[in-house]
Nucleic acid binder design. Sequence first.
DNA 1: CGGCCCGTTGATTCGTCTCAAAGAGTGTGG
DNA 2: CCACACTCTTTGAGACGAATCAACGGGCCG
Lengths: 261, 261
Amino acid sequence: MSSKNEVQDFKTKEPCTHKARGIDVAELKAQCLHCDLNAVCHPPSLDVKELESLDQWFPTRRRLQRGETLFNLGEPFNALYAVRSGFFKTLVPNDSQRDQVTGFLMTGEILGMDGIGGGRHACRAVALEVSEVCLMPYGNVDEIATSFPTLHAHLNRLMSQRIVQDQAAFQILANMRSESRLAAFIVDLGKRFSRLGYSPNTFVLRMTREEIGSYLGLSLETVSRLFSRFQEDGLVDVQTRHLQITNPEGLADIASGRPAH
Amino acid sequence: MSSKNEVQDFKTKEPCTHKARGIDVAELKAQCLHCDLNAVCHPPSLDVKELESLDQWFPTRRRLQRGETLFNLGEPFNALYAVRSGFFKTLVPNDSQRDQVTGFLMTGEILGMDGIGGGRHACRAVALEVSEVCLMPYGNVDEIATSFPTLHAHLNRLMSQRIVQDQAAFQILANMRSESRLAAFIVDLGKRFSRLGYSPNTFVLRMTREEIGSYLGLSLETVSRLFSRFQEDGLVDVQTRHLQITNPEGLADIASGRPAH
DNA sequence: CGGCCCGTTGATTCGTCTCAAAGAGTGTGG
DNA sequence: CCACACTCTTTGAGACGAATCAACGGGCCG
């Protein structure tokens, strides 16, 4: 189904968003000990010895081409995925209608938590660029919990944070107008990039206008118009996918629902 | 602040939604062993002996009057709450604007999971009628996890299900029109009532039009108009708060985004 | 070069919000 | 017990925002 897309290679024209991490493709065995995603996957309290023994649990990585599917809706759930590099979207295939994009995930974020409850994935995850994920077999998570209680508590914290994030997104969708939605979306992306050590104000959009629109409940035309308007108002500088926030405060104001008109 | 509201007693005029559970107010010590919420709080695999020892962990209950706040936004998080009886709303106080309702919770559902991640509650929970909750001190949850791994896995499952639910709500908000939103809301309420052993097609709305509107991202007038229209179309029978679904299939069709026009 | 996907912009239509007023239900105090 | 106040609900008229339909330009690939 997506075999066509997988062939497309991603042109590396981006200015700053994703530095090469120098990962050897042959090296499939993960080493949590030296992984720079440590802070995400594990609580800070784990010491070196514990991390070393953890390496028995998280052995595999997987590399995906642009457009490739990591897991599908309805697929049996048996692992969580930590995004090591790259960019993903999650979507729910809406029969007959266009697919609904339910989220975007970048380096350092966890994919697949929706599957824990029902034993099956509740959405489809697709790579938006060449990406690499770290597999955490979930059958083991229970066992891990007993050996590393703090690790399990950490997973709980991650899931709870996710719930809070969803709530926030929910709120934006429920009572913000289109301009606030898009502004909030841009600000949020910036925050997440800055957490990775990149600039919060200059980055490359990995997704199309249509995907943004689907995610925000807007038509792709509205998204395009808003980008143009933001540019006119001196809030951002957009060159198709390349985005620079030139007036972060103004954008944040709009995001919080205080329109200037 | 809510001391005024607490005095109001709730008139028990409802036809079918909440049978009296005959709970003795003096009996504050919870007994998970004989609790009819067993299936919610605990995995099915726990045997009687395990349940007995669990009673050391979940000792307290709390009774709330209508309008009373269970916990507030920003309050330190230290317990999860299982709704034993009654009805709650969660909301985020939007400074200056009207509050945003983020959810409604009924008997058998878990309140407070948003607080696990940040250590503070991310919303406010208010009782919409006389309600009773079961306190689960969260400091203990970690300890419980080690003694009862299946219990902790159960909590994970609950949180994951919550994430999936939120995603679904997100989707409805993102690309459904008002009529589909309200229809989906009604159908969802019915499902949840039926899980409690009540009719999925006849129940009492515990919340105002404004609260429904806030939750669905609609104005209260739109909600009211939609109820009227659904009634005209023979889908439901509404007497202010008393609701009966007269055409479940038709309502479900609208909920899923297949409008008849 | 031609085809295709993506993005932009314009004209029009339709849905929902806002403002407004009046009716219904409930609790309060004389 | 009734009048009053208050909140919640219903319904209408008008304004505004976003979707839709449509056309065109640009970049990328075969």
